[in-house]
């Protein structure tokens, strides 16, 4: 655990110094600009738009960080040969992979925490402008929590591909899975639109194997203040954790067998 921690802190330090956190400035500018415009256009009719926009921006900026850092996490170390001196130290290959993952997870958590704080600051400002609008709603944090879990799953996918393929291919595969994962429900109901039972079975199989990102998306319910059962949150969290664990186990297995020529 000690070694994993040191590797993770190193990833975090590199990410911060590589100006990853600059995206927060873009996030803040987007949110503040949008809330000002909405304040002007709708005269406070709909604070929900800013809630929608805020949650979507947190998810999108987080996704960009998860994919674009995740795909290079292992690849860069191998390409730049820094892995040679690192693996000659008393560090096991699985510790390297888990440390890399933990480091990016930490970077994401800090990013999302800062974005969420900025989001609530804007909501607090709107609450002063439009009293009684219910702008500062703690229920939104449930949506943020599932966004975090979704980002951790995306990171695990990017890291898994990064252990054996180039950044370009890893990015394409990760984004591909992310898009498919958001339309996963269509795969489950594929028999309704195709004649072939084989195609329907294949689609059903893919539905169970591919990550179901749609499950993590409760932004609409949070914004509309609709109830989300606690059991749903727990089941989704468990699903995410198990999927992440399987991906990390796969990444460790691939990485353990690799020759660094």
């Amino acid at each position: 655990m000690r070694v994993i921690g040191h590797v993770a802190v190193n990833v975090f330090k590199e990410s911060v110094r590589d100006r990853v956190l600059y995206n927060l400035v873009a996030f803040a500018a987007l949110l503040i600009g949008a809330s000002y415009l909405i304040g002007q256009l709708t005269a406070g009719q709909d604070v929900k738009i800013i809630k929608d926009l805020g949650l979507a921006a947190i998810a999108t900026f987080g996704l960009l960080i998860a994919v674009f850092i995740g795909i290079g996490l292992v690849w860069n170390e191998v390409e730049r040969r820094s892995i040679y001196s690192l693996l000659s130290k008393p560090i096991r290959r699985y510790e390297f992979i888990l440390g890399k993952y933990a480091g990016l997870a930490l970077t994401l958590l800090v990013n999302v925490a800062i974005m969420t704080a900025a989001f609530y600051a804007v909501l607090a400002y709107l609450a002063t402008q439009f009293p009684g609008s219910g702008a500062v709603d703690p229920g939104l944090l449930r949506a943020v929590a599932l966004i975090v879990l979704e980002l951790l799953l995306v990171t695990a996918i990017a890291l898994f591909f990064s252990t054996f393929s180039s950044p370009f291919l890893s990015a394409a595969l990760t984004f591909g899975l992310w898009v498919i994962g958001h339309f996963n429900a269509d795969l489950r109901n594929f028999e309704a639109v195709v004649q072939s039972p084989a195609a329907a079975r294949l689609a059903r199989g893919l539905y169970y194997v591919l990550p179901n990102f749609a499950a993590f998306d409760i932004k609409t319910q949070a914004v509309q203040a609709l109830p989300v059962p606690g059991s749903y949150l727990v089941a989704t969290a468990l699903y995410g954790v198990v999927y992440i664990a399987l991906l990390l186990a796969g990444a460790v297995m691939v990485f353990a067998r690799r020759d660094f020529k």
Partner: peptide, 20 residues
Amino acid sequence: AAVRRRVGYLPENPSFYDYL
């Protein structure tokens, strides 16, 4: 892995972390 505590290694054309 324990033997690596007693070994030092310099790879050919070493490269490290840009921002450290």
